[in-house]
Design a protein around this nucleic acid. Structure first.
Lengths: 152, 152
DNA sequence: ATGAAATTGATATTCACTTTCGATTATGGC
DNA sequence: GCCATAATCGAAAGTGAATATCAATTTCAT
């Protein structure tokens, strides 16, 4: 994971936004950076912190995640399970990427290719609606669950 | 609105699912049928009922909407405003249609054309993921808001 | 009509999230 | 380095949508 954030001066970035660079915020961000392919809820972050014998108040984690989202260090994703989830913000993509959500096992797969550019052009033309961002989720059966015989 | 539900024997449909066809459920469904182009929350339904001098308990409305969703009479849509919203289920479309959400005025526009069939074929091929349904929202500026000069 | 079973709706509860506020800590000027 | 002060932390209380509880009521098959 050669994330630009490791090189980038995080302290500086926090200050740009008028935030202080505290240990708690650093530790919350660390969890996100250590799991670049996951979509972590507040509770997930709390769990991973506990595994590392770190205790940070729920409110601080909530606040930090919102803060990280504002700084575009993480992106909030809604996977329809009633929890706010966060993934690292990928500055290489100019729009949110899509997610495959398995209805059986709950696994989540990222789809990196955008594939909506044409559609968004069409929307601009047909509806005169200027798309700024999008959110696309596919619900279905993942490779594993398709191959299993499921006697329910 | 030549909705098939008007012709279809609703009472029969409720019974098929083991539900009773009560006046309250009828009245809740009426509100949905009277606003086929809206995306109503529980509170919205309650408001429209009050306008008609009808009082139905919150719990009953919640329960009825969930019931109607199970019967595929309505479809639940999540428009990222923290409320469960419902629209009439369109049996002509084989997948959920998409929504344009204006970030300025909050207006919601349905997009009836699917346009994701190719993409879903590609996903089946590339990821061996079998798409059952999808959820696509576009966030941006609607025609009206684009044309306004907005001094904020 | 009658009674078992479902429904209603006021109220309580849950659950994710936010706010409050006194104690603590980071940061910039000296 | 030290101090002031403004931001932050976190326990606890508060919110608000959604769900569960349960006694009273209604429905429907007989």
């Amino acid at each position: 994971m050669s994330n630009e954030l490791e090189i980038f001066n995080l302290k500086e970035k926090f200050h740009q936004f008028g935030y202080k660079y505290t240990e708690q915020r650093q530790l919350v961000l660390d969890v996100l950076l250590e799991h670049p392919d996951l979509h972590l809820s507040n509770e997930d972050v709390c769990e991973y912190l506990k595994q590392k014998k770190i205790n940070i108040g729920q409110s601080t984690i909530y606040r930090t995640l919102i803060m990280l989202e504002k700084m575009q260090i993480v992106r909030r994703v809604d996977l329809n399970d009633g929890l706010a989830r966060y993934e690292l913000f990928d500055h290489d993509e100019n729009h949110a990427h899509h997610h495959l959500i398995c209805m059986k096992c709950g696994s989540i797969t990222d789809i990196k290719n955008d594939l909506l550019e044409d559609l968004e052009q069409q929307i601009l033309h047909d509806y005169n609606f200027e798309v700024k961002d999008h959110c696309l989720k596919f619900f279905g059966l993942c490779e594993n669950c398709r191959n299993k015989n499921n006697y329910c």
